[in-house]
């Protein structure tokens, strides 16, 4: 048990927390009776997935993805790497190490993808809540069991 905690849970504890959040959302979608609570669970489920994707772009010791100097790096890289595939003589001094500025900041690609996902998620949440309001106007309740009973009574009458 302790072994499992140290070797499996500890190195990726954030992923475990995301899965717990996801399961909280799924549980509320299945087990909650109120439609608004279900929508809240859906939003929590979605944020857990977005958290997972954004955490894939995190690097150790990296800062926010803002490019500070572009031209400087290009000049240095040109000087450091001679053109052509010729092999350097074995006693030549090693070329100076040029740090690529992309290594010093977090990967911005998952950020941009998840930005879209957040906006789309809020739009779908708005549609879902509007549907909840329509259901309330029609049946005068948002509880699932009452709704099912009323719909069944409606079908029995018809």
């Amino acid at each position: 048990m302790v072994d499992f905690l140290l070797n499996t849970v500890k190195p990726h504890f954030n992923f475990w927390v995301y899965v717990i959040l996801m399961m909280i959302g799924l549980w509320s979608l299945i087990a909650k009776n109120n439609l608004i609570k279900k929508m809240m669970g859906l939003a929590i489920f979605q944020t857990a997935i977005i958290l997972f994707y954004v955490s894939l772009g995190v690097k150790d010791g990296a800062t926010i993805p803002v490019l500070e100097s572009y031209g400087d790096y290009a000049e240095k890289a040109e000087k450091a790497e001679p053109a052509g595939p010729e092999v350097a003589p074995p006693d030549a001094t090693p070329a100076p190490v040029v740090v690529n500025p992309a290594d010093t900041y977090a990967n911005p690609v998952p950020h941009v993808l998840m930005l879209t996902a957040i906006v789309v998620g809020v739009a779908t949440l708005g549609v879902a809540l509007a549907l909840c309001e329509m259901i309330y106007k029609e049946f005068d309740t948002l509880e699932e069991d009452e709704l099912l009973r009323k719909i069944k009574a409606l079908h029995d009458d018809a």
Binding site: I36, M39, M40, A43, T47, I50, V54, S55, G57, V58, A62, T63, I64, P65, Y105, A106, P108, H111, V112, M114, L115, I118, V119, G121, V122, L125, G126, L129, A130, C132, E133, Y136, T141, L142
Partner: peptide, 30 residues
């Protein structure tokens, strides 16, 4: 985590607008 653009969007759209949507729905229902 270093994702400041996502943080801004979440603060305005995720926390702000979706809370307003929830409250608007709750005030119109029960």
């Amino acid at each position: 985590m270093g994702a400041v653009d996502v943080a801004f969007t979440e603060a305005t759209v995720g926390a702000g607008v979706s809370t307003v949507l929830f409250i608007a729905t709750i005030l119109n229902t029960r």
